[in-house]
Computed example of a mutant assay.
Amino acid sequence: MADSDVLGYGGLFLGSFLAPTILPLSSEAVLAAMVIGGFDPVACVLVASAGNSLGGMTSYFLGYVGKWAWVEKFFARNRDRVARVKAWADRYGSRAALLCWLPVVGDPLAIALGFVRSPVWQVGFYMLAGKFLRYAVWVWLIRQGMRLYD
């Protein structure tokens, strides 16, 4: 593997890791550029999925160490609203992590799952599955678009 490949995949991992934060990053744009640039699509999906899932689990752990006072102060949420989120998380459980790839709601969902202490291994599994499926579909769409120009 050439140095440029290592840097490319490393950049994809870093961008994917940082994307599920409050930073305005698009891991999909980096992934698209790499696939269009000739990088291995399977490796790109695996690297982006791993990086984005680890970033999402970082959000989960931030929620896990959270306290009621922090939620009320920094997120302007009262206990009643947080209790409704907890009831929702209890109802759907860790499977809700399948939706952590969604824009806008995915990151707060990961934090909420940590806050309500959903099982870490289950959250990690479902989060990885959801993010992997998103990137696999994204790469498939990119490759279909590339075929239009061949």
Results as ranks from 00 to 15, higher is better:
L148G: 09
G124K: 04
R84H: 14
D90F: 06
L54H: 13
L14F: 12
L25M: 14
F61S: 03
S16F: 04
A87T: 14
W121D: 02
K86F: 14
V47E: 08
D5S: 13
G37E: 15
V47D: 09
N52A: 14
D107G: 07
L99N: 07
G63P: 05
S59H: 05
G51F: 08
Y9I: 01
D107M: 03
V85F: 10
T58H: 03
G124A: 14
D107C: 02
V120R: 09
M127P: 00
W140A: 15
N78K: 06
A129W: 00
F17T: 02
G55T: 01
A129T: 14
I111M: 11
P119R: 12
G8D: 03
L7Y: 04
L12K: 04
K73R: 14
F75E: 10
A48V: 04
S26Q: 10
M57Y: 15
S94E: 14
L54I: 12
T58D: 01
L46I: 15
F115S: 00
M57Q: 14
D150S: 09
M57P: 09
F74L: 01
D90G: 07
S27T: 06
G66T: 03
N52M: 09
T21W: 08
R134A: 11
G114T: 07
G55M: 05
L133M: 15
F61W: 15
M57T: 10
L98P: 05
P103H: 13
I111W: 11
L133G: 10
S53P: 03
V6P: 10
V82L: 14
I142Q: 11
A110I: 02
F115K: 00
P20R: 09
P20I: 03
L12R: 02
W121G: 05
Y64D: 02
T21H: 10
G37C: 13
S16V: 02
V123Q: 01
F75W: 08
L109E: 02
G15W: 13
G130T: 07
P108Y: 10
G124Q: 04
Y126I: 08
A89F: 02
V139P: 12
K67T: 11
A29G: 06
A136Q: 09
S94R: 00
S27K: 05
A2E: 10
P24G: 08
N78D: 15
D3H: 00
G51Q: 08
A112F: 08
A89T: 15
A83M: 13
A112P: 06
S94F: 05
W70M: 06
A48W: 01
R117S: 06
S27H: 07
E72D: 13
S53Y: 02
L148I: 10
K131T: 04
G130N: 06
V42K: 11
D107K: 05
M146R: 05
W138S: 15
L128C: 07
L128G: 02
V47F: 07
L99P: 04
V123I: 05
G66F: 06
G114A: 05
F39C: 04
W121Y: 11
K67I: 03
V85P: 00
Y9A: 02
A87S: 12
L7R: 07
Q144Y: 00
A50C: 14
S27E: 05
S16L: 03
P41G: 11
G10N: 07
A96C: 10
T58E: 03
A89Q: 01
I36Q: 13
A112N: 04
A87P: 08
F75H: 07
A136H: 07
A76W: 06
S59F: 03
P20V: 04
V30P: 01
L62F: 11
F115H: 01
L148Y: 08
P24R: 12
G11F: 12
R77W: 00
